[in-house]
């Protein structure tokens, strides 16, 4: 199915295309089973940022009101990209890890199942 329209064409650019980010990119990431933070987070970041720096300096601090953040070891995480199994290299950049504009990453940390052990 495609959109039905009047006129000769119906062709518009995507509103969130990468060129709107001035060299940066928009990425999405969620720490599963920590649902007091309700949704995956979204970031605007440069592609040459090291994945470890992102996790330690940007991502983890966003969960500062969650007691699990003190205990987390990201290297023991179970990672997914676009809901498929995936293994990042922590000392490489986003770009080197194949993380592109609008990538969706999820990480589960077995043993850290959120507050009360019920995903909160």
């Amino acid at each position: 199915m495609a959109v039905k329209f009047i006129g000769d064409s119906y062709d518009f650019p995507c509103a969130n295309r990468q060129e709107n980010y001035g060299g940066d990119m928009n990425i999405y990431i969620v720490w599963d089973h920590h649902l007091i933070y309700c949704a995956p987070n979204t970031y605007r970041l440069p592609p040459n940022m090291k994945f470890r720096d992102f996790l330690e300096q940007v991502f983890a601090p966003d969960y500062f009101q969650h007691p699990d953040v003190e205990k987390v070891d990201w290297e023991k995480g179970v990672w997914q990209m676009e809901n498929q199994p995936w293994q990042p290299d922590f000392d490489k950049t986003f770009a080197e890890n194949g993380i592109a504009h609008n990538s969706f990453i999820r990480v589960a940390t077995p043993g850290l199942e959120g507050l009360h052990g019920v995903g909160n």
């Binding site: 969130n16 949704a39 809901n83 609008n102 969706f104 999820r106």
Partner: peptide, 12 residues
């Protein structure tokens, strides 16, 4: 969380 992806015109 349920987050499903669809790519169109090279943008996810």
């Amino acid at each position: 969380n349920c987050c499903l992806v669809s790519e169109y015109k090279g943008t996810k």
